[in-house]
């Protein structure tokens, strides 16, 4: 699991670095080609869209490439979402949440340990030490954060 997380974070790092490089090129040439509305846009606008450019660079790269092939790819002023489908998706999402969330939160509350003040939970609660308490002064164990439950 740790190896998998390491590899995933490394992949995300590489993806982000490529995204930053792409963002530079995109601001230099791609942006005005992709969307004519961005011509003459200021630095503030470029800053605002940069996190999205870094996050979605493969999508934009494909769009830039296709724009070169077929002309502007930005949706025209007459395009619009399909409201019927969106309404259906909204309804479905809330029906799913209405069932799943009470279930998940119910499980979390039903099986939560007995009140720590009763002294019966030393076995069931993870190590917790409020910052400043005597336990908190102990050196942290390798790969063992000392206060996990105080968020």
């Amino acid at each position: 699991m740790v190896e998998f997380v390491h590899a995933s974070l490394l992949a995300i790092q590489a993806y982000g670095t490529l995204g930053l490089v792409f963002a530079l090129a995109f601001h230099w040439r791609g942006l005005s080609r992709l969307d004519q509305g961005s011509r003459g846009a200021g630095l503030g606008f470029r800053w605002v869209i940069t996190p999205g450019v870094v996050a979605l660079w493969p999508w934009l790269a494909v769009r830039c490439w296709r724009t070169k092939q077929v002309g502007s790819f930005a949706e025209g002023p007459h395009a619009s979402a399909a409201p019927g489908r969106l309404r259906a998706a909204h309804g479905l999402a809330w029906k799913a949440l209405a069932v799943l969330l009470p279930l998940a939160v119910g499980v979390a509350l039903w099986w939560r340990p007995i009140d720590p003040s009763s002294g019966d939970v030393t076995e069931s609660l993870p190590r917790t030490a409020a910052p400043g308490s005597p336990d908190a002064s102990l050196p942290p164990q390798p790969h063992q954060p000392e206060t996990q439950r105080s968020h």
């Binding site: 992709l34 969307d35 961005s38 606008f45 869209i49 999205g52 790819f73 930005a74 949706e75 979402a81």
Partner: peptide
């Protein structure tokens, strides 16, 4: 948050 600008609405497509 990163795609909240109208630029994204237009370039990602409304759907």
């Amino acid at each position: 948050a990163a795609t909240s600008h109208d630029f994204w609405l237009r370039n990602l497509g409304a759907g």
